[in-house]
Design a protein around this nucleic acid. Structure first.
Lengths: 234, 234
DNA sequence: CAGGATGTGCTACTTAGGTAGTTTTTAAAA
DNA sequence: TTTTAAAAACTACCTAAGTAGCACATCCTG
C-alpha cells in the first residue's frame, strides 16, 4: 500500500458497500486499510483452500470469485457464493482459525486487499465494535444459504434457472449482469444441476423468445415473460 | 430470574457448551445472565416467526427446537437446524434487527433463557469482545448449511439417511440420540425428502438388520454395517 | 371402550433430472 | 489459414424420487 495515503480515499470509494467498513470514520478507516496490501490474481485461478487463506484475509476490490464445494468422487461442483466487490475471503478462517474446506476460483482478473490474519485480529481487538459488521455479513450469507437450500428442496431446475436469471437483471439497465458471460456449466453449478439439464431448459427459453443465448453469452429478451413463467410455477 | 443469584451457577453449568458464554469469567457471566429470565415452552408449539423473536433473544437450556423453512405453495418443509442446549434463537435478528423468515417448533418441552434484544445489545456494547463468540457460532452454522447443500446436490436419499443416522450415534453409548424418537416425516424433513421415500429406505435398513424401527422409535442394530454401506456409496 | 388422529407399510404410477454419446458451432492458438 | 479445444445442441435412455392412495397399527382422549 502506498505510503502517501493517496490511495486510501480511492479504496474508501470502491469499498463503500463493504460491510466490514460501514459506519466507519475516516481515521479508523485509515488505521485499518493501512494494514492491507493490494494483490492481483489472474483470471481462472483455482485456490484449493491453500494455506494462504488461513494466514491472510482478503477483501475483493474488483472481479468475481466463485466459492464452491467439490464432490471428490463424482467430480461434481456446486457454487455456493459468487463473490464480488466488497466480499470477504475467508471469513470462516477469520472466525475461529480452523480450516474451512472450500474451493475458490477467480472468474476474472481479480484485485483484492490482503491483510495477515494476525494483524486484522489485533486491529479488531482494538476496535471490537466492528465485529458487528462481520456478524451482519455472516448473517447475510447464512440467509443466502438458507434460501439456496429451500430452492433446491422445494423447486425444480427450471424454476431455479428462472430465479437466477431474474435476480441478476439490473433494474435500471434491464441487462443481465454478473452471470451473463458464464457457460452453461457454470450456470448449472450455480443452481445445483448439470450442464446438459440446464442447456435443455435454456433451449425452451430460447424457443419462446425470452432469452438469447450464445457461447458464454446470455441476454434477456423478454423479462416480463420470464417473470410470468416464474409466477405460473407457483 | 432469582434475586439470590443461586441459580447462576446452575446456568453456568448447564450452559458450559454455549458459545456465547465461552471464555467468560464469573463476574462477567453474572452480569450477563442476570439480564435473562427463564421461560418454558410446551411441547409441539410453533413459532411462525412471531414478533417475540424480533424483540427477544433466547438461549436454549433444555429440549429440542427445530428451525425450518416452509414452502407455502406445496406445504413442504425442510428442517435446517435441530437446536438444542446452548443454541440461540434468533441470532439473525440479533445481528441486524431485520426480520428473519423462519419457522420454529419445539419438539419437547423446552426451557430457554430469554433476554430483551435491547438489553443484550447494550450489554454487548459494553463487552464487545463477546461478539467473537457469536461470530464463531454463526460460522459453525454456515458450515452446517454448506454441508447440507453439498449433501443435497451430490448425494442421494439413502446416503443422506445413512449419514444422518451415523452422525447421531453417541460414541460412548452407541445409541441413537436426538433423532431416535422422530417420525419418518420429521426424518424426511431433516434430509430434504418426503415421508414415503424415507420409509422406503428405512425398510431396506430393517431388512438387512442394521436398523430397528417402530412408531417414533429408531434404534441402531448394526453400526459397522451402516458405516460400511455408507462407504460403499463412494 | 369407541372414535379420531397420527404414524407406518406397501403398491402402483409418473416424471424430472441425471447420464452417455455424438455432432455442430465457436473461438482462440499455432 | 489450419488446428485444436471448449462450449453448445441434441438424442436416447435409465432410474431415483416424488406422488397418490389405501390398509393397518398405534396411541391418546373423551
Amino acid at each position: 500500500m502506498k505510503e502517501n495515503g493517496m490511495d486510501y480515499t480511492r479504496y474508501r470509494k470502491s469499498l463503500q458497500d463493504c460491510q466490514l467498513l460501514s459506519k466507519m470514520d475516516d481515521a479508523t478507516f485509515t488505521s485499518l486499510i493501512s494494514l492491507f496490501n493490494e494483490e492481483k490474481w489472474p483470471k481462472n485461478t483455482c485456490f484449493v483452500n491453500e494455506d494462504k487463506f488461513l494466514c491472510k484475509f482478503y477483501i475483493i476490490l474488483s472481479g468475481r470469485v466463485k466459492m464452491y464445494q467439490l464432490h471428490e468422487f463424482s467430480c461434481k461442483e456446486v457454487t455456493l457464493f459468487l463473490l464480488t466487490k466488497g466480499d470477504f475471503i475467508d471469513l470462516f478462517c477469520l472466525l475461529d482459525g480452523s480450516r474451512h474446506m472450500a474451493y475458490y476460483e477467480s472468474l476474472d482478473e481479480v484485485k483484492v486487499l490482503a491483510v495477515p490474519m494476525k494483524n486484522l485480529h489485533e486491529w479488531l481487538q482494538k476496535h471490537p465494535q466492528y465485529y458487528i459488521n462481520l456478524l451482519s455479513y455472516a448473517g447475510k450469507q447464512l440467509r443466502m444459504l438458507e434460501d439456496y437450500i429451500a430452492d433446491v428442496i422445494f423447486t425444480d431446475i427450471s424454476t431455479r434457472l428462472l430465479k437466477l436469471l431474474i435476480s441478476n437483471v439490473n433494474k435500471s439497465s434491464n441487462n443481465l449482469e454478473l452471470i451473463n458471460d458464464l457457460s452453461n456449466k457454470e450456470i448449472a453449478y450455480l443452481i445445483g444441476s448439470t450442464r446438459a439439464v440446464v442447456n435443455r431448459h435454456i433451449q425452451k427459453l430460447k424457443q419462446n423468445g425470452s432469452l438469447h443465448a450464445s457461447r458464454e453469452n446470455l441476454q434477456i429478451n423478454n423479462l416480463p415473460l420470464l417473470i410470468k413463467m416464474l409466477e405460473n410455477k407457483k
